[in-house]
Design a protein around this nucleic acid. Structure first.
Length: 586
RNA sequence: GCCGUCCUAGCUCAAUGGCAGAGCAAACGCUUUGUAAGCGUUAGGUUAUCGGUUCAAGUCCGAUGGACGGCUCCA
């Protein structure tokens, strides 16, 4: 019996075939290439020849799909030889290429046909298409390279989704709508958190005062977390001589993401694409003893990377990014405990951000790719085994990704799930058994002999810019108190109460609470609306009733959270509540 | 970088090839407001930029820049 996951895959794959048939009906001569099921739906690639289609055509295609569907009672499968496949799909170069490839891999070629649409593919189908395929929706049109290779022809890809029931489809479509609403680029504008100005440049976001408060709150939190865990903070400049990157091997491996070198006094410099060499230089600046280790250098280091124009996106992919980067240099016997320490930091950080679900990706080298990775099989195997053990001991939910390792070592990446169920990569822990030797980083062991330290490259959030984007979308802009740029807005019922508001303002400010007074000449309802739209955690309303209720040393205000009226409270009590919430990060 | 779509006031958006407009925001005035939008007035534009077609271009064509959806990439 097939499990639910297989069924969903088959459902979507069958739907991709239905899409292909509809498109070929509407635009005869169109070739369909591949059309697999994917995470939340499916896609089908087409070569439309000279025809251009747009999102407006999707409704038409859907209509045709619905017309075809009732006739699709059952898929008939047939095994064919390569020659037969060549004859059957002689008009479609993409199918022939696939057929050749399947045959070369020793796979049996199989055609399928629901009655009027013969196709060749390797995935399964549902038993009863006309019944099962009812709840589908076409979503978007995009370009995609044939076989995902940018040297190949660009095909037209149609994305869609299909669910076993209408409820599930509707829920997914709602989720897409919701994601659109909480897009960090839209909220970033309406909540005034950052701007991107053409005059400054593409991929170079500017944080406004409010955006900076969030960034600073994250950094302060990390600083404290790291300090308590025994990390040492450093600061390093944003440029360095090109030569150091040649020594580390970064220049050879990542030349295409580094900006053009520039000259200073006859020497060649470059904007730093990562912080490693700077930290290594601090390590190397004096002799180190085995007693000094581990040395944990850490810094929110801003790096500059050339992302191709089409890759830049809001705060998610930028050309100037700040990595909360740490390099831990240690003895071999310290590897496990240092990973333990980092895992702890990462867990605490996720908790503070309200991110409760995550899994890890164990990124290993692809042994067949000798160009990308430093060659030394034994060291790679050892490093990979160490990471696998750490995952096992800590019972981390993991997936293996071959070929995703750094050129200098395997890594564990943390993939978190946000409040909408979307995955984001954040933290990374990379084990490096190569670099110390390469750069001559040493320490003296208890016998007086020089030894190479092991290095962990640790990114806590990965990129602060990206983290801001993720948190904006995760919280839909309604940040918890400790991250909120404005924590309290004081609203006078009329401007007769401005003096009173000022004394409340002074009390809150004295307690380090971020507060503003809304002095606008507007009715109370309009001011409350503004506060709610700006997603300010607490509104503090002061009018005749509050003044009447106040005593000499105890001012009374009406408090309203984002959702509801909380009634009257003394400001002293309110301050205590706020400080407690900030402290607990809720 | 590639395929496709798009770019009009600070923001969200109108305007058959024929006088560039609305709402919000802003400034000023009236109102002094009681839990999600009080009223009026004013100001705000080289319609992304450059070039072309046309009696006439926001609208059609080309180039450049930028944004968006994907692809590729993401140390």
């Amino acid at each position: 019996m097939e499990n639910k996951n297989d069924y969903l895959q088959n459902l979507r794959h069958s739907c991709a075939h239905l899409l292909a048939k509809a498109v070929k009906d509407l635009w005869p001569g169109t070739h369909n290439a591949i059309g697999p099921a994917i995470e939340n739906g499916f896609y089908q690639d087409f070569d439309f020849g000279k025809v251009k289609i747009s999102e407006e055509d999707l409704a038409k295609i859907e209509k045709r799909m619905k017309q075809i569907l009732p006739q699709w009672k059952k898929f008939i499968f047939n095994e064919v030889t390569l020659d037969e496949a060549r004859a059957l799909f002689k008009d479609n170069p993409y199918k022939i290429e696939l057929a050749k490839e399947f045959a070369k891999d020793g796979k049996q070629l199989q055609t399928n046909d629901p009655g009027d649409f013969l196709d060749l593919c390797k995935m399964g189908h549902v038993d009863n298409p006309s019944h099962d395929l009812k709840h589908f929706k076409l979503l978007s049109v995009a370009g995609a390279y044939w076989r995902g290779d940018e040297k190949n022809k660009m095909l037209t890809r149609i994305y869609g989704t299909c669910f076993p029931s209408k409820d599930e489809l509707d829920k997914y479509l709602w989720q897409l709508e919701e994601a659109k609403k909480r897009d960090h680029r839209i909220l970033g504008k309406s909540l005034d958190l950052f701007v991107i100005d053409d005059n400054i440049g593409k991929g170079l976001p500017l944080l406004t005062p409010k955006g900076y408060i969030i960034r600073k709150s994250i950094l302060d939190f990390e600083y404290e977390l790291e300090s308590r865990a025994g990390f040492s903070h450093v600061w390093t400049p944003h440029i360095a001589k090109t030569e150091i990157y040649r020594q580390t091997g970064h220049f050879q491996h990542y030349k295409e993401v580094m900006y053009q070198p520039f000259g200073i006094d006859n020497e060649e410099y470059v904007l730093k694409p990562m912080n490693c060499p700077h930290h290594y230089s601090i390590y190397k600046s004096k002799p180190r003893s085995y007693r000094d280790l581990p040395i944990r250098l850490t810094e929110p280091g801003t790096c500059y990377r050339y992302e191709k124009s089409g890759e830049v996106a809001g705060l998610l992919r930028v050309r100037a990014l700040t990595i909360d980067d740490s390099h831990i240099l240690m003895r071999e016997d310290q590897i496990e405990s240092e990973f333990e320490l980092c895992l702890n930091l990462i867990k605490k950080m996720f908790t503070a951000f309200g991110l409760h679900k995550y899994y890890v990706r164990l990124s290993l080298a692809d042994p067949s790719d000798s160009i990308k990775y430093i060659a030394d099989k034994k060291t790679w195997d050892d490093a990979s085994q160490i990471l696998q053990n750490i995952i096992n001991v800590n019972k981390l939910n993991f997936k293996i990704a071959k070929g995703e390792a750094s050129f200098y070592g395997p890594k564990i990446d943390f993939i978190v799930q946000d409040s909408l169920g979307r995955d984001w990569q954040m933290s990374t822990l990379q084990l490096d058994l190569f670099m110390a030797k390469k750069l001559g980083l040493i320490y003296t062991d208890e016998k007086g002999n020089p030894q190479y330290p092991v290095i962990i490259h640790r990114g806590l959030t990965g990129s602060l810019e990206r983290t801001l984007a993720i948190l904006i979308e995760h919280y839909a802009g309604a940040f918890p108190l400790w991250l909120s740029p404005v924590q309290v807005m004081i609203i006078p019922v009329s401007d007769k109460f401005l003096d009173y508001c000022q004394s409340v303002y002074n009390l809150l400010t004295a307690a380090n609470i971020r507060v503003i007074i809304d002095k606008d000449n507007k009715p109370l309802g309009a001011k409350i609306r503004q506060g709610v739209l700006q997603k300010i955690p607490y509104l503090c309303i002061i009018g005749e009733k509050e003044v009447a209720a106040s005593k000499n040393n105890d001012i009374i205000a009406s408090i309203r959270s984002r959702e509801k009226d909380l009634g009257q409270s003394s400001i002293n009590e309110f301050v205590k509540t706020l400080l407690d919430q900030v402290d607990k990060k809720i």
